[in-house]
Write a protein that binds this DNA or RNA. Structure first.
Lengths: 134, 134
DNA sequence: ATATGGATTAGAATAGTTCTAAACTTAGAA
DNA sequence: TTCTAAGTTTAGAACTATTCTAATCCATAT
């Protein structure tokens, strides 16, 4: 697996301690944290980090394709380090957000059923009870 | 077609000029306006209406099932007076949001493909170019 | 080692939304 | 009709998420 440093360099981005810390926190984190959550967690190990830096980092890394911003909640952006195409499942009880494989429902499938639309991308949010909440 | 007054009464809600004005503006409006847009438009005919009233009205009518709040844009809520189940198409060029029939993709269909998930609801946002923008 | 352009910072500013408490209807009872 | 209680509206304050600003800092290329 590529190191953070390698990935940043590959995108012509400076390797900074802040970016690395944000990426390391997100890597392997599957619960789609908000920017504020990232900020608070990273701050523990990196007390001087600023909220603006976390916003900047998320935006920069998203543009570089290293992160994804997920639209599943109206008020705050949720961040996903899984950048492969996939959908989301939101538990109506505990609010947990899980990734769901893309092939459950591809743009192609939708295109076939959606006559007259020129679908390039499909975002699906499924809602129900997660395993824990049933 | 039911009058606004009848619908409000059926839901045990007081019939006020403000609620009626908001509903009348939204009725037949298919472009999913934001609260601010509703406020500005209704204000033209009703100069003393307050922004808080529009927020209250949207929330109240949504709870009563007379409106729907649509999650298609991170920063602001979009309001839809089409309360039947349906999906949305967002034009990546002009930002226009259109309703798409629900049967293109039902919760049932998704459930069949999504093993292990207990799907109660599916929200789909398709993205591409709308007719005008192609 | 040094220069320079990009990155980080704290805090101010902004946008959307919710809250507050007083004033004002609406709807139902008398 | 008139009265009343409960619900509604209002302006503006407050709050939350996010972006902006401008000064400082530091990663990288030389």
């Amino acid at each position: 697996m590529k190191t953070m440093s390698t990935m940043l360099k590959a995108n012509d981005l400076a390797v900074t301690a802040q970016r690395t810390a944000v990426m390391e926190f997100l890597h392997g984190n599957t619960d789609h944290p908000s920017v504020d959550t990232i900020y608070k967690r990273v701050k523990k190990r990196f007390p001087y980090i600023s909220r603006a830096t976390v916003y900047n980092t998320v935006k920069t890394l998203t543009r570089a394709g290293m992160l994804q911003e997920v639209l599943v909640q109206q008020d705050k952006t949720r961040v996903d380090s899984n950048v492969s195409r996939h959908h989301h499942f939101k538990c109506v009880r505990c609010g947990r957000i899980e990734d769901v494989p893309y092939d459950i429902l591809t743009a192609k499938h939708v295109s076939e059923h959606a006559r007259g639309y020129h679908v390039e991308e499909v975002r699906v949010v499924m809602e129900g009870r997660c395993k824990r909440c049933r």
